[in-house]
Design a protein around this nucleic acid. Structure first.
Lengths: 216, 216
DNA sequence: GTCTATACTGCGATAGAC
DNA sequence: GTCTATCGCAGTATAGAC
């Protein structure tokens, strides 16, 4: 079939949207990410994902075979991005303190760029028992953070501590703000959670709190 | 009807379990708490709640009218307990540092006694947009914590900071350990999350981290 | 590659017997 | 107060036309 004929045919079928396959796949993943972030694997509805996307439910099954495989694809999606950001810092030979500051900044930036990933991860823990956690690519950055803490202890910059628990504390400080937002806005209705000013204050507050908690 | 006759009848109807109404209600609430903690309002299944309870689905509607009202009842259930624990501390005229130490201990104890409440709260934030947050009774303890931080600042025991953000940091430190457990056990399979030893280490680690992060 | 139509199951909620 | 039976809709997934 000639190209011209195909293009004509594409236009003719008005009700049927013919599109780039990769674009459709990405759209489904975008919508799925939002839906899984809110409801988790079990609570999410394929119908809602489809209607947000603009294509039909059948497309989800055409590209991803099942709701569960779609979920896995979403978990894998940005697996490498945060690790890359962290690894770039590693190559800069920063002091443990400065490296940690940069990691906190990068983690908050990551939450803002991918506001769904953290919530999906929590749903994965709470409702899916962490079954697919490994797909998310978070193990390496966490290990990296622990080794950074250890280096700080060895250099007597950080006081001695259990790096495993400390890493959990630090992750809690950074993520709770974003995950509990909808509850806490009931208490502080005027706080603008995502405004640049609020984020700047959060970054400053979290950084000074964490570093003060670590220093020798 | 005489008591004896009633008792006999109770035993005779073998397939039909005749029980104390309050006990049945409490059983439903127990099962519902677990189910909502795992799946949230939308993901939870009344069928599962019923089968865990040992009574039938119809009982849920008899006592609670709807899934949503059952959910609200669960949210309200232990609303006052943590506040009471905190208020007891208030009456002891402790220093801000000691009071905070005791609150951290109380919060961790609360997580262990009611392991579902924290997760329900997070689901409430993430999937229900905090619609029923007020029912949980957490506003007062949070406000109390903030005033304690302010007192510490005024007495120059704590360094100056935004008490709202600091309170969020502290809650993050305490809750993340429990909420992310199922993900993190993939990284540290040998860590025994709920063992007395692990909880003791968590308490010590969180306390020293938080206080070091606050001190002037 | 995308759509419509539909099979089939799960689930919230109710009616009515005991 | 508890059960059985069932209604009606919502949800996952598939078949088949285009």
């Amino acid at each position: 079939m000639e190209v011209a004929t195909l293009a004509t045919k594409t236009r003719k079928v008005s009700a049927r949207q013919v599109r780039d396959a990769e674009a459709t796949k990405a759209q489904i993943l975008d919508a799925a990410e939002e839906e899984f972030a809110r409801f988790g694997l079990i609570g999410a509805r394929t119908e809602v994902i489809a209607s947000k996307t603009g294509v039909t439910k059948a497309m989800i099954y055409y590209y991803f075979n099942s709701k569960e495989e779609l979920y896995q694809a979403v978990l894998k999606r940005h697996a490498a991005t945060f690790l890359q950001a962290v690894e770039q810092l590693n190559s800069q030979e920063l002091s443990p303190e400065d490296a940690l500051k940069q990691i906190i900044r990068a983690a908050i930036a990551h939450e803002l760029t991918y506001p769904n990933q953290g919530k999906i991860l929590l749903h994965e823990a709470m409702q899916n028992e962490g079954k697919y956690f490994q797909l998310t690519g978070w193990e390496m950055p966490i290990r990296f953070g622990m080794s950074l803490l250890q280096r700080g202890i060895d250099e007597s910059i950080f006081r001695p501590h259990n790096t495993w628990l400390m890493m959990i504390h630090i992750m809690g400080v950074i993520t709770f703000y974003f995950n509990a937002e909808n509850n806490l806005q009931n208490i502080a209705p005027d706080w603008e959670w995502r405004s640049p000013d609020a984020i700047a204050q959060l970054t400053e507050s979290a950084t000074s709190f964490i570093l003060a908690g670590l220093r020798n």
